[in-house]
Amino acid sequence: MKPKGLLIDITKCVGCHSCEQACAEANGLPQDAATDLSATHYTYLKSFNDETVFVRRLCMHCNEPTCVSACLVGAFRKTETGAVLYDESKCIGCRYCMQACPFEVPRYEWGSLAPKIQKCRMCYERVAAGGQTACAAACPTGATMFGDRDDLVREARSRIDANPGGYVDYVYGLSEAGGTSVLFLSAIPFEKLGFPMNVPKEPIPDLSWRVLSQVPKYAVAAGVLLFGINWITARRTDVARFEAEERRARARGAAESGVRP
């Protein structure tokens, strides 16, 4: 299966909140109004400019997800559909994924005694069975569009090219964190809509791998160096002790020979 994705065209969104409702329904979550992403709201429609512009928040499903690399027990995985999934049976609850995510997406069940991470699953089961995500299916204006990520990238480019005055010349998610499955188009600069613009344009896991991959080399080098230093100091101690004994023996010998005659 080709990796799927979502193209969210902010200019087409009318703010009907159908995506939120469909998401809650598909995932068995309560149907209450969202005020932000939360453990029970996998997507959230935020309004800007006096409720004239609406921006969806949801997991970006990075191509090389930071959460996948950050989790020490490998509770996250990037699936063949493009969805990034979390497995609570592995999780130990360190919350490094929440800290690591450049889009601050993973949410925690703070009230639970066995808390889990919650976030958008890009309707993994539906997509794997050949369907599309609940939010895309529910969107009445086509603002959220489901498809192969490659096709969506082309679609995004052609929309900008066809109407250069109607869009900012930027596809958010094309290169953020090395590329994400969720892409955004907008008529207003993204930084004015709360999008983090300082997200590195390379896969973020590389930032720690650069250091982590040096660990074996460091361990070997440090081990050799420390054993070497220890060998030298130990040898010096041995020599000093030997010389001290010899000197004592000589002194004893001289004393004995002095007594005898």
């Binding site: 020490l72 490998g74 130990i92 791998w209």
Partner: peptide, 23 residues
């Protein structure tokens, strides 16, 4: 601090060498 402290032993058998937290 851990949310699921009873699972702390997972670190011993579930390895992700790409994670700094693993180190």
């Amino acid at each position: 601090d851990l949310g699921r402290p009873w699972a702390i032993w997972h670190a011993m058998i579930m390895w992700n060498p790409h994670s700094v937290m693993f180190e």
